[in-house]
Nucleic acid binder design. Structure first.
Lengths: 221, 221
DNA sequence: CCCTTGTGTAAGCACCTGCTTACAAACGTA
DNA sequence: TACGTTTGTAAGCAGGTGCTTACACAAGGG
């Protein structure tokens, strides 16, 4: 997987850029799977099929490698998505789980929380950018707080679903989850559209009625 | 603080129960402050004013100590609080932060997430009980999922406020936060009352209007 | 007094961590 | 071929971890 094609068997071709990239990919995977602390440089180098000394030659330290991993992914989604769709896109990305080239930055953060203060700083930095965009969806003077609360829910859902694997959330249908969350969040961020998946909510009882109540209540836009 | 009173200066009285309790308290504090991994047995023993060998004599292993810490606190709140008030009580407890004898179990979980799979199991176990109660607040067939989503928000808020310290959420007024969250959550858990703090939401814009829309929409009780 | 039992203590063990160093093998060039 | 540079490798270092062991002190009883 993700192995350089011009790699003969037995003999090692010298390809600095290639091994650097393989190290970056392996680090991205392992950070997402185990978090910063539990992903050791030996494991990362092993998965990349490289020696750990190369890791330090190319990146200097484990923390610097973590920084490059976080800087690589994560922010394209943030900039290529319009504000009113950012929440649903991020939520769906998290619900879809670790696909081939999915953005696992949030997952990395979630699993690395306890690691060190610098990791918390990194998550705060990424959170600033998301929350800042989300805050624009409310015209209230508590817009910043509302953006934080929306982001909190996003991360909390990722926490329970991806990290803790709590049922029934862990294997719930992404459409259903997205619908419930986006519907309830309409009360916080009035600029949030109901979106694609926010319409069909499987078979729902009285709760769905309340969500629809917000819709019929009129979207002040 | 929390030191046995019959402890003379200089001379050490032999009090197994006392040191056991001091170890338990120190562990509770340090697990909450740093999470499971970063709280070392040496630090715990030091804070308790005891030798780390005693820690292993009394508890067997670090994981067993963690288990006793988690088992001690945490569940009284769960059982002494009626379902429809559980969310707000837990949220307010988390917003209030680590008071004297506050229940920091959730905080411990949040900071220990990445630690090991057993820690995730512990959090899942605690989450089961909370989500199970919250699920009773919806009569929908997606009640379990709704309970999980509410719990996710609770933990996400704790994550961003206590661990990440993201502003403006970190220093936001608990009443305001509680009001916004409980209001928005009314769309998910129709059995959730607006509660004490869910009424006065400072100066709010159109978002509050939507929340009121749910109220006037009628609570199908 | 000696002896046994329970409590507290220091030193150490085996292992793992991030990181470094000395060296071998593959190139490019002359 | 011979040389220097770049890439890859194995071994090791200093420090920290959970946990153990050997031992010193305080009781209580004969």
């Amino acid at each position: 997987m993700a192995k350089s094609p011009q790699r003969a068997a037995g003999t090692h071709r010298r390809d600095a850029q290639g091994t650097r990239l393989r190290l970056l990919d392996a680090a991205s995977e392992l950070f997402a799977e185990r978090g910063y602390e539990r992903a050791t440089v030996r494991d990362i180098a092993d998965r990349a099929g490289a020696n750990q000394a190369l890791l330090f030659r190319y990146f200097g330290s484990k923390k610097a490698l973590f920084g490059e991993v976080m800087a690589r992914g994560g922010q394209e989604q943030l900039r290529s998505t319009p504000a009113e769709r950012l929440f649903e896109v991020a939520l769906r990305g998290m619900l879809a789980g670790g696909g081939e080239d999915a953005d696992r930055s949030l997952e990395v953060c979630l699993r690395s929380i306890g690691g060190s203060d610098e990791i918390a700083d990194a998550l705060r930095g990424l959170g600033e950018e998301y929350a800042e965009v989300l805050a624009t969806l409310s015209e209230s003077d508590t817009g910043g707080l509302r953006g934080d609360l929306a982001l909190s829910w996003l991360l909390g859902i990722g926490l329970m679903r991806v990290v803790v694997a709590k049922e029934p959330l862990a294997s719930a249908d992404p459409d259903t989850v997205c619908s419930l969350v986006v519907g309830a969040l309409g009360g916080l961020l009035e600029g949030l559209p109901t979106g694609d998946g926010a319409r069909r909510v499987g078979g729902d009882g009285a709760g769905g009625k309340a969500a629809e109540g917000r819709e019929s209540g009129g979207n002040p836009g």
